[in-house]
Design a protein around this nucleic acid. Structure first.
Lengths: 132, 132
DNA sequence: CTTGACCTTCCCATAACTGTAAGGTTTAGA
DNA sequence: TCTAAACCTTACAGTTATGGGAAGGTCAAG
């Protein structure tokens, strides 16, 4: 299977698939004409990558997950651990964003939004945060 | 004021401050020995940048906010608009993360997490998403 | 036989820094 | 006075995960 088909079926851009080969996440064979040739197994890995990337796992996390997937002896507990840590990070990020949002909301509320040049948002941004 | 002091007082790493100069967000003078010399106004801008970056504004948004700040004639409505759009983006991101989180949570719940090699998380990741 | 849709490699760009190397300056202490 | 630490300088490379585009080879249809 050429890279075009692999792209279509995995949902990944061809460009990205080539990149995944460069960093050795997939190792397709080559046809006589030099074209990459993806096996069912290669395609499977690409789908795995597409899905796990879209779930927010970093490339290195995906590499780890793939190696666990490849390893018939791995314990499901290992995978569960990785996923749990990921959730923690996601929750942290959500918290941060909520804080950000409420700060910005407050600023917006206090801004009259007219043509006058004084603006509580800019004033807040300009406030020294670290200096005493 | 040397870059070290400016860094300490603005809460930005010196490295970052030099970067901000490179992209022309701050333009400190130079002392006779070639060291950067930060005025009160420069420091003010650095604090502004520290604060707005920490609130999630991109560099280019910060550049715009700074230009509005510099311009006594700007309308606070402009700033309010920028902040409102930012909130929308933040809300989007939060939604995405929540979706991610619930998907991962479901996967984790379905995983027994013991020493056995079968793992619903990996199974899900391996499922073809795009292929028919 | 040609056109267009593929495919190849290679290099540059992104955002917003961070790290490192190699060197100049200043300051405090022995 | 010497020296070592703590500053400062520039310049270049690396990071993350791709995306864009050039220059060129291949293949399938008409």
């Amino acid at each position: 299977m050429n890279i075009g088909q692999a792209a279509e079926q995995s949902g990944l851009p061809a460009k990205t698939i080539r990149y995944y080969e460069e960093i050795e996440l997939v190792r397709p064979g080559r046809a006589d004409n030099g074209y990459r040739d993806y096996s069912e197994d290669d395609l499977h890995r690409l789908c795995f990558l597409q899905r796990s990337r879209s779930l927010g796992f970093s490339i290195e996390e995906c590499r780890l997950l793939l190696s666990l997937y490849d390893d018939d002896q791995r314990a499901s507990a290992d995978v569960k651990d990785i996923a749990k840590k990921k959730i923690k990070l996601i929750e942290q990020k959500i918290d941060e964003l909520n804080t950000l949002k409420s700060t910005l909301s407050k600023l917006i509320k206090s801004c009259h939004g007219d043509e006058r040049p004084d603006c509580p948002i800019l004033d807040d941004l300009a406030r020294n945060q670290v200096r005493k």
